[in-house]
Design a protein around this nucleic acid. Structure first.
Lengths: 204, 204
DNA sequence: TACGATCGACCGACCAGTCGGTACGCTGTG
DNA sequence: CACAGCGTACCGACTGGTCGGTCGATCGTA
């Protein structure tokens, strides 16, 4: 009995993070008050400021979680074995799938990033940049190998693709007809074929 | 003298709209106070609430301006003469160029749209939807004509492309090395070649 | 085993400040 | 005189954040 009370109940800190994520994604960072967050988590402001330094800190924690997850998955797929075309295909698809699986995080990320304190903002941007660079290196590798077209800067291809991924939060719905896998496959097809790679399987 | 005072000086209403646009793009809608807007425009709150019903109304006016402009340009390019491939290429390029030319509007649009009052929000979404549909019809036309690949839903191609366009506000800078025309050409290339059309000029 | 000391977790009342919005007055022009 | 075009003064609601205090668990000691 005592054991179940301790282990089963979700800890307050985790609940605060979860509710904050939901509310930020729903109404935006600035439109969500600390009062609403603590009410949704079933605690008071005292509890929140016990676990987090500020409202900004809460947002920062959410970002940290997203960045760590994405970076870990990216490196795993990018550093795998096999031809660069297949690796980029798998990576692109995984990015879409994980984005769709954590759609709230994604919405918050691109909608409220600029609300962070300047210093925190720079840190997040820097981490995001490293992420993009790892992805870009894959594109460059394919260009050097002669399997991707070289007349468009890799940097721009990356911005082009991640724009689409980021936009997912605007239109994709888990209740819709498409699964994350399906969208991922289509997106990866579009990316590869825009790079002139046969894996994009254009019929032509 | 009296004439110049009337005709040369930029009218208050226009100044309010311009400053609001700048500030919303810079700090976001919720983080910009009415006080800051009127101060930047060199007037007081009385003036602002004389011309606009509310802060939301101000945002709505900005949206109306953007939507009218984009819709007008889209129809002009989409309804032109010539093969569908060339028309889509020109349309896509124009979308990028106008987005880059009004980058502040674009930033506001995708970052603060959800802050609108529910009813206004629906109106804006509906207009945006009509815009997407017109673009999608171009893709479908090309698919029926057999010049675009048909194994990816046109709807998704549109979301894919406009995601990239929307994302421009995040990374593009007018002070950077690339002109709007150049970005537009690259984006149009990527779009057309992802559709398997020769205008995407993949070297292969 | 008993019991005071100490700890983290959390509550709830409260603060100074800011927000969007309003009421009303003045002023120049037709 | 009438009325558009503003400025001034102010309101009530709400904000993020603080602070003193409570309560149960744990630990050192006898």
């Amino acid at each position: 009995m005592a054991r179940s009370a301790v282990t089963v109940e979700e800890p307050v800190r985790r609940r605060l993070l979860a509710e904050a994520t939901r509310l930020f994604a729903e109404r935006g960072f600035e439109s969500t008050s600390v009062q609403e967050i603590v009410a949704a988590a079933g605690v008071t402001k005292g509890a929140m400021y016990h676990y987090f330094g500020s409202k900004d800190d809460l947002l920062h924690e959410i970002y940290g979680r997203v960045l760590r997850l994405q970076m870990e998955r990216l490196t795993r797929f990018a550093d795998a074995e096999g031809p660069v075309g297949e690796r980029l295909y798998a990576t692109a698809m995984d990015v879409v799938v994980t984005t769709v699986e954590n759609l709230d995080d994604s919405k918050i990320f691109f909608r409220s990033m600029h609300q962070l304190a300047p210093e925190t903002y720079k840190t997040v941007r820097a981490e995001r940049r490293r992420y993009h660079e790892r992805f870009r290196d894959l594109v460059i590798e394919g260009q050097r190998a002669g399997v991707f077209r070289e007349d468009i800067p890799a940097e721009m291809v990356v911005d082009f693709f991640f724009g689409s991924v980021h936009h997912l939060g605007t239109w994709y719905s888990p209740d819709g007809p498409l699964s994350g896998q399906e969208v991922g496959r289509h997106f990866a097809d579009l990316l590869l074929s825009s790079l002139g790679h046969p894996l994009g399987k254009t019929v032509s």
